[in-house]
Nucleic acid binder design. Structure first.
Lengths: 206, 206, 206, 206
DNA sequence: CATGAATGAGTATTCATTCAT
DNA sequence: AATGAATGAATACTCATTCAT
């Protein structure tokens, strides 16, 4: 069969281009990232780039998807190590936020992309994460469900993910934030716990 | 006096240009808004535009400032009508979010600008609002302080404002959001109340 | 009579504009000197400027003429003090060049203008000087004529004036000239003397 | 080999652009020469122009270099034909000036460039010429050195090249020069001979 | 399949000059 | 006469995309 090696080459090429996209994005920012830069960085002709991706947007989209997969894998790995089900919500939330913030400082690509969320199909990155968290959180909530049933779990997770994510990004972007990082984490944790654990007999939604 | 009519003309021109900026922004998005578009839309020569604003950025900045002023005025007006101090937190929050979302749907300029928060001096718009909310909320919290003292009010408001704002914006941007608008408002309200009203004896932050 | 004060006012205005032109020229260079700059510097509206000068070029031209007059006056003054007729050609030439170079270093306007000789009617400045030198030199050569008749005096002066002038200007412009200033003056002096004093029996030109 | 035709194409393009630059320069003058004009004249898209030259300045600079090379080649060719070492200084100088003036009348590009010498890296053009003349003149001066040693040869050549060059250019530029062309050549020749051949026992320069 | 030369619409900004007030 | 707001053609340079080789 001829197909396998070809597919493999193709895959390599795609990965190389995606790596180059990420690197260029981190280095120059979305605004100053050009397809020619990406091709050059990938050590590939611009023509070849367009053989694998129809346009610049597709490139970013694919990168987003790959990052989502990687992030899911990373989270899964961590989740397997640490037995979250044994921890209380507060600890889990606090840990997750701290971990996320560290990831964000470490990965300029994530920052660059999320900063420009409106110009890219950011859901490609966020949706998998949201789904993943939902799945991850399932056992926890199932376990507590009888005592503290959480209504509207989907809406709550949606809100929390967005809220935490963009607040953290915005915080990161500010030169002189009005609050400290530990205050931010603490308050975000409080917010999460407040929404998920507090008894809400008054909420008639849904 | 010669000065008044001239200043007035100048003011009119500035306003016309700002209106044109807003309209073009709403129509074409920040990326495809050019100074020539703005001038044309304002019915003014490009040269005149540059007589009033040194560059494109100044135009956006001025628009941001004008919007912040307008928004503050609008909020103040509403705050004076409705006696928030008589309402409970849940009602106030719910009303404010609903009002904000309605404003946001109604005003594509706000959307366009906030979407591009990272590429514009968005704080020009947000800072006054943040300050305004703080001032507005002051009497309410002062009033309840004895019964339900709120620790870390500053950090909490910072988090809530950012969280609510960007979640709402993101929600707006999505074509097929996974939750309904009423769910969003309800959940955000829950989140606000959860953070502000819940007893937090465990929070040892500074 | 009404005319005198008006003419005087006009003259003042012209001078003010010319001063402003010179100052702006020295500060920003011909390329970045705009009529609006000049008007502003003169404390006059741009409209008034165009009442006195039909266009930008006329402004420069008039400045050139005024400078030529001033330079002539200065030279005449110096010539009256120092009795050139008592000095030998070498001394006169050497002195004149040194003086000219000092003037040139001291006056950025002169430099800026002469640098742009091709884009302005530089003859407005050079012609009077040429004529002046010719007149100044006349008595000297007349005086020596019997002993050392100089053939083709006009052509020689033409050549020397241009040669010296532009060599000096070019020298001034260079950041790292290949020769020193004293060498330049010495060589130019040699050149002048060589052309004017050497016996030229072989020159059969008309 | 793939390289040769590509390099050749590239070279052709560069030459085409340089030709277009020269033509446009001659036609419109440096001030009114735009990169778009050049590209259009070269029958090439503006994008292509910028693929070969980073900016307008680089274009002019490259043209200057090419012209210097061409001029050197031409001079060398002529020098090989005519055995200058057999001619006296007067004849060589006279011939060189006449030849240079003819070249200058024939080549408006040279004129345009030298006229704008202060706005372009004119040394790119002059330095090679200066060096060339020095080399060319070497045998002559070597030959005469024992009998008539020329002091300060470098300074003298510097002065003469500048003096002759700009006087000729200026002469060319004038609509009604006060002297005739043959007088100019004659006088310049006298000047050169006067400076180089006359005994200068009085020159104490370093 | 790969290449990379070629494309050209698009963008922010400047400045001499006019003319209604 | 004086003003200065308004004009708009002009300019250098970018970058996503195509297509002949």
């Amino acid at each position: 069969m001829r197909k396998t090696p070809r597919q493999q080459r193709s895959r390599e090429m795609v990965n190389r281009l995606l790596d180059a996209t990420a690197a260029t994005l981190a280095e120059r920012g979305l605004d100053h990232t050009t397809t020619n830069h990406i091709a050059e960085r990938a050590g590939v002709s611009i023509g070849s780039l367009y053989q694998y991706f129809p346009d610049k947007n597709a490139l970013v989209e694919a990168l987003l998807e790959r990052m989502a997969e990687e992030a899911s894998a990373r989270f899964r790995y961590r989740a397997e190590r640490a037995d979250f089900s044994q921890m209380d919500l507060r600890s889990v939330a606090s840990l997750a936020i701290a971990y996320g913030m560290q990831r964000m400082s470490a990965d300029p690509v994530v920052r660059e992309l999320v900063q420009n969320w409106n110009r890219i199909p950011i859901r490609k990155l966020l949706d998998p994460l949201e789904r993943f968290f939902l799945v991850m959180a399932q056992p926890y909530f199932l376990h507590r469900y009888r005592d503290y049933p959480v209504q509207n779990l989907e809406a709550k997770l949606y809100v929390l993910i967005n809220a935490v994510l963009f607040t953290v990004i915005h915080f990161h972007e500010q030169e002189n934030p009005v609050i400290r990082q530990d205050q931010l984490i603490q308050t975000l944790t409080d917010m999460i716990v407040g929404l998920l654990e507090a008894p809400q007999p008054a909420s008639p939604n849904g």
